[in-house]
Design a protein around this nucleic acid. Sequence first.
RNA 1: GGGCUAUUAGCUCAGUUGGUUAGAGCGCUUCCUUGACAUGGAAGAGGUCAGUGGUUCGAAUCCACUAUAGCCCACCA
Length: 904
Amino acid sequence: MMDKHYDAKAAEAKWYPFWENSGFFHQEPGKGEPYSVVIPPPNVTGILHMGHALNQTIQDILVRWRRMQGKNTLWLPGTDHAGIATQNVVEKALRKEGKRRQDLGREAFVERVWDWKKQYGGTIVHQQRMLGNSTDWQRERFTLDEGCSKAVAKVFTQLYNEGLIYKGNYIVNWCPRCGTALANDEVEHEANHGHLWYVRYPVAGSALGVKGELNKDYICVATTRPETLPGDTAVAVNPTDERFAAIVGKNVVLPLTGREIPVLADDYVEKAFGTGIVKITPAHDPNDFLVGKRHGLEEVNIMTDDGHMNELAGEKYCGMDRFECRKALLADLEEGGYLDHVEDYDNQVGHCYRCHDVVESRLSKQWFVKMKPLAVPAIAAVRSGEVKFVPDRWSKIYFNWMENIQDWCISRQLWWGHRIPAYSLRESAGISEELKVKSDELVFVAETAEEALEKAKAKTGNAALTLADLEQDPDVLDTWFSSWLWPFSTLGWPENTADLEKFYPTSDLVTAQDIIFFWVARMMMAGIHFMGKPPFKNIVIHGIVRAADGSKMSKSKGNSLDPLELIDAYSADALRFSIALITSLECDTKVNKEKFEIGRNFCTKIWNAARFIEMQEANIPEKKTIADISDLTADEKHILWATDLACRKIGEILENYRIQDGALAVYDFFWTQICDWYVEYAKDAPDKARAFAILRDVFYKALRLLHPYMPFITEEVSHALGYLKEDESVMLAKFPEGYSQEEKSAWGLSAEIYEFVNAKREAITALRALRAEYKVSPAAFVKVTLATDDAAASGEVESLKKAMRAETIDFVASGADLPMPSKITKFATVYLSLDGLVDKAAESKRITAELAKLAGFIKASEAKLSNESFVANAPEAIVAEARRKLADNKEKAAQLEKLLRLFA
RNA sequence: GGGCUAUUAGCUCAGUUGGUUAGAGCGCUUCCUUGACAUGGAAGAGGUCAGUGGUUCGAAUCCACUAUAGCCCACCA
């Protein structure tokens, strides 16, 4: 016996270990058409959030569906080492002990991070199991594990040898708090309400007086970042700007420093902005850097790694924080009369995507990947249709980015990550001065230190060199430098494995729009470059989960939902189904807790329907099976036809990645077709054994259609109703494809009969509406007359009597003049005889009151309307007034006449 | 500055290549505690599909413009 209430927690605790321990998630690269997906690896520091819930629900639906189709299905899980994020977490923990990572030293620190990973890194992996993910845990990978690291070293070396990796002195985005360079897309631009300061630079040789007594001999520049002033090495004007033509080539004096700097002409300067004069700070602004390169300017770096001013900023400012320095310097400029005026100014300021500190532009030596040569074939693969975006519009965004791609800064000044496989020679190696001059060539890139040593020996001609003479580059690689290899590094590359052979390229990649550039585009490039084939066939892009008001979910705002709490409150199936039902691939998903009640309620419905089957079957003495049914009623044919339709439709919907439509279709099929109509029919079916044989078959098809969305309850119910043996699972059952042509013709199914029953239901609905309209109890037996010419209708007398709760059903010709009340449907004109069913006096009073409202007597106030004597004494006037008012409203006028006829 | 998208019921959204009466969930109104289910059932109210113009026998759907909102990219100090 099934319990009265579904115990989701018990089912989840029971079936997940059953699936995992039975090896149902695991797949060997044997026979069968492959279907493979690699999970977007969550950060190892991560905890499961709604974004994961959405992303992984979609994947699991696709994966479970393909597995049920009989494909050789692999969903490969893993986590990302998440360089900055993880290092930050451990450094934070260290800080509580009053230590910095430098106190431990590199080796001990990295050891410490590994310890952290061993202890806490499994959190998200366990949480993913709560969702019901059917990932092959036997293949779980980590971007910093041995295999992935090997792949990274090989890729770096190969790209270096191909000339696609280089080291350069460039201006990079620098996070002072994290102490590392950031790639362009790791910088988030946020609106900033700031100021534009106008600063006077005296022309050389002139003297700038104290405030209020200035001579005219100065030029004025506008800046948003006055603290970089000590790093200025020029000011610039547009070459076509006649206002300043005379001053170009002269020098001006840098305020507060006394240093003279030149005035240049450069196209970069916009005449219309600010004063038309720009201060040039090559070491602290990317544009200025380029201007500096063009004009051979000195690059004066005035800041330290952690965002403080250094000695080049001047004695007074040295050691100050950059923002503190801004204040101090502005005060000094004002004091000295250099500050002309200030304007409010809104601009965009870059912030670190990890710690949200304001990013600095900073000059440093970094490693870069040349992206253009890699982008070209990756663009072509999407253009040719070899790889498809779903929905397609994302391809436009992909092209736009790929066609304007910038080189990728891949070095990070961190300790946690893949250390760059580049080696230089220590002092101990005793390098000759001659070689030192060409120091760039004394970097040896190789997959291992030993190979680098061989290269060093060959280069220097010194066979006595040992590993101790080599020093590995201290930087590590950007986290994405391992994740861009994920689709093949996880399958064993660079070894030539059977897994790679079978499962590469993967089938679908499912991810959110926010990492198309970070991750998807780069995987495309790496896949094509190293494997010769794009890493996946379809890129399924879904939106971001947002709070109910459309804002981003964040812990600090307190508007985030925790999927684990939702699972606890409503069950994993409820979470999965609800999110699938409310998520369109086309746009972001707004959620609040209440939306997950849909799934919870659906679980309840499924459970109760199953209980109904179990209870009813117990009362059927001689059970039948679907194999031995014959002479079906129209309603029975209808549900079989509807089931066949649902099976085919849902398969087709999933082929097109329409997860939401699939959820909607299966929900409607189960709730409306099975529960609302067929189950009600089955209660009073002429042959209960046959009706339940059909229900049993239809119900298991429904459970299998539902399984990808709701794995736990479908497994539980499939076992409870005896569809499966103890050691079997619905997750390995065949996904239903509908009934065969033979079955359909043997049972006499047809679209005509399906439509006929739909029409019949309209008639039943119409009768219910008439009951509601005339306040006839749903329980009361009534006399019904149906005006129809459909000969088949008379065959439905018995089922109509039951469904309509009719004492008698009479048929008349469709043209017959029926008294009111009646409703016209496709099936028939339905007439309900009210004799003896309605308290005419009470009903008359009610209708009179309504007419009074219609006629405008409503103004007589609610109190008067409820006054019986008023209504009773005024019907003539009310009717006359109602007739007059409703003269233009045909529908309501007809209703009025109908009522008058009825209650005259 | 460049690119992308959206605007349909009170709210959140569906509406596949243009084709009967534009749908769902929630909310709302009325009724029903009939033995699968009140986390339920029945009935109902509510939409000039942002606006204007065009293409078409026919437009929520295609095109143009307008308005509004949002997202992404980008080096305007």
